[in-house]
């Protein structure tokens, strides 16, 4: 990789993980709020957007962060978070139809596949 490309990768790898972590934490908090009081969040915010943002950020983080330990850590947290939030996300995705559900399942499956491939590394 060329020097400028490496530099960009390092900058992105520095900026994105905190946002990815924040998006995951937000997803967990929103899921819990929704779990306690249905409609508290979903009346105003589409969960698919939050889940998609978290997923994309983590994929970018995984793609840019160099050290394998951090990459593994980067995968463990969102996988666990999404797994924990899955029942609520499933419940919320249902009204949005099969497409919303399929997007979520595909995203989670993608993370699990990458996670497993990282473990093998």
């Amino acid at each position: 990789m060329t020097e400028p490309a490496n530099k960009i990768k390092n900058i992105v790898g520095t900026i994105v993980p905190p946002f990815a972590t924040a998006a995951t934490v937000l997803l967990i908090i929103l899921s819990l709020l929704e779990y306690f009081r249905r409609g508290f969040v979903s009346l105003f915010l589409d969960f698919r957007i939050v889940a998609a943002v978290a997923l994309v950020l983590w994929l970018v983080a995984v793609a840019t962060e160099a050290p394998p330990r951090r990459r593994r850590l980067a995968l463990v947290l969102p996988t666990l978070a999404l797994a924990a939030a899955l029942p609520i996300i499933y419940k919320l995705a249902m009204p949005y139809g099969r497409l919303g559900l399929a997007t979520l399942v595909a995203g989670i499956a993608a993370i699990v596949v990458i996670f497993l491939s990282m473990i093998k590394e």
Partner: peptide, 19 residues
């Protein structure tokens, strides 16, 4: 990294306050 962490935390809090 510090600025990123601060902005990420601030964004999360902003979303929660907005909700």
């Amino acid at each position: 990294r510090i600025i990123s962490i601060f902005l990420a935390a601030a964004s999360t809090i902003a979303v929660l306050v907005w909700i």
